[in-house]
Design a protein around this nucleic acid. Sequence first.
DNA 1: AAATATAGTGATAAAATGTTCACTATGTCA
DNA 2: TGACATAGTGAACATTTTATCACTATATTT
Lengths: 208, 208
Amino acid sequence: MTNRQEDILKFIKKFLDQNGFPPTYREIGRHFSISSTFGVKRHLDALIKKGYINIDSNSNRSISLTDKSLSLFNEIQENNSVEIPILGRVAAGYPVFAEENIEGTLYIDSSLINKGNNYFGLKVRGDSMIDDGIFEGDTVIVKSQNDAINNDIIIAMVDNDTTVKRYKKSGSKINLIPANKNYNNIEVTKRDNFSILGKVVGVYRIYN
Amino acid sequence: MTNRQEDILKFIKKFLDQNGFPPTYREIGRHFSISSTFGVKRHLDALIKKGYINIDSNSNRSISLTDKSLSLFNEIQENNSVEIPILGRVAAGYPVFAEENIEGTLYIDSSLINKGNNYFGLKVRGDSMIDDGIFEGDTVIVKSQNDAINNDIIIAMVDNDTTVKRYKKSGSKINLIPANKNYNNIEVTKRDNFSILGKVVGVYRIYN
DNA sequence: AAATATAGTGATAAAATGTTCACTATGTCA
DNA sequence: TGACATAGTGAACATTTTATCACTATATTT
């Protein structure tokens, strides 16, 4: 994305926040002193091509921001807190942030997040991580990512169910290690129904 | 607001959620089988008059929802996060919220707090509560209060130092009970240098 | 030096959208 | 019953908006 394109994307975001509907080509052009709608159009075409916006063709005033573009802005609020979705049951093969998965929202301190990444909250089921101080009912704050390094606490999707474990890879063997002596390691080397949803970056517990 | 008007308002809301931009008169009409845009227009005029929507005149596709209308859908999110101070070393005999004690601030979800009470965060030192999942370095979120009931996790001030423990009173004996077998109960019955600063209502942990 | 991507003008065409008209119909309220 | 608000049709029209053209200009890359 070029600087110009980024500026235009930011303007669209701001316009949307302020008005509740997207700007027209002319409104964009006016703001940037681009007299021809064609000049604007080409920027928008570039933004579409790069996946930052969608435009409903044979319609007008129909620019919408994609997830990619929203994560770019990450919705940081002036007050240093950030809204993240709390996910419920996540099904395999489904986009994690699909609306059906979202059970609520949580405001967390923005010190917890790095701009440009997606975060979500997940309620912990089971007691397999109690020795690491992650209890049933706690909400873990997860940075969305598909890989991990040794010793990360991750959210893994195994057999169409999510689980919190510590990640350990040696050679081609991947182990998911619980923090509770009553549980066994899960070895996932030969399974293909395994994926990483994210890395736990925080824990949030509310008493009664 | 008539039923018809309410239906139309709901449709606009849904359309906005799904598309990121508002519908045109014709799109509304199509959905409700109103063939004339004038029929639609009069509903919208009524909704404007009653304060549920705004329409930017000499523009198009510019319906936006007002606060009144958003609150109807229960989507008002004024500020669902609250700023609380993080306290450092708290000295006995000093007001807890004295500026000297404040080390920083933390934004937490407002679901955690009851209006009308004071809350603060406190960084945990030591591992006396690990069996309850409160680890060194965690930040406990504390509701400021001077009393407690059995089994509450409290912040107690003993001998001019703060400590996190579980509260247990039987008869006139007050015990501060750690959640770690390597530590002993603290009995405070006959001490006068003991006070309760608050009750732990939440825990917040950030990994590295 | 030539090719390519980005950025823009000015004009015109085409499509989408909003505005207004006269007219009909139905239920509610006083 | 008469007044009034709500709800709708169908058409004509004006405005807003997007689409596309040929053409210019400036960097960057090959």
